Amino acid sequence: MSKSAKKINYEDSVAQLEATISKLEQGDLSLEEALQSFEQGVRLSRDCQSLLADAEQRVILLTADGEEELSDDE
C-alpha cells in the first residue's frame, strides 16, 4: 500500500513511535535492528510533525475565516 493510499493517523503514529523508542531504550537490539528501529522512528516522527503542521494550518484558516465573518458584522 502506498503512502498516499494509506491514511496516517496521528494517535496511532505517536503510539508506534513511543513503542519504537521504548524498544531502542531497552538496548538489547542488534546494531541492524536498532538502525531499522531508528529509521522507523524518524519516519514516524516526520509523519507526526507533518500531521501537526497540517492541523495547525487548518486552525489558522478556520480562525482567519471566523475573524473575517466577525469583522463583516461590525
Rank of each mutant, 00 (worst) to 15 (best):
V42I: 11
A64N: 07
D54I: 04
C48Y: 03
R58C: 00
G27K: 05
L62Q: 13
D54L: 04
R43T: 09
M1F: 13
L24F: 08
A34W: 00
E11T: 10
C48P: 03
F38G: 01
E11K: 11
T63R: 14
L31E: 14
V59L: 13
S50F: 09
Y10D: 00
G41Q: 03
D47T: 11
L17M: 09
D28Q: 12
F38I: 05
S4Q: 12
G66C: 02
A55P: 00
L70P: 04
S22I: 07
E32Q: 10
S71D: 13
D72S: 12
V14W: 05
L51C: 02
K23F: 01
K6V: 12
A5G: 08
S45K: 11
L51Y: 02
L24S: 07
R58H: 05
S30M: 04
E39Y: 10
G41V: 00
S30K: 07
S71N: 13
Q16Y: 01
S22K: 14
A34D: 02
L24W: 08
K23A: 12
I21V: 13
R43S: 11
D72P: 01
L44V: 00
Q57G: 04
Y10L: 14
E68R: 15
S30R: 06
S13K: 03
G41C: 05
L52H: 09
E33T: 01
L29W: 07
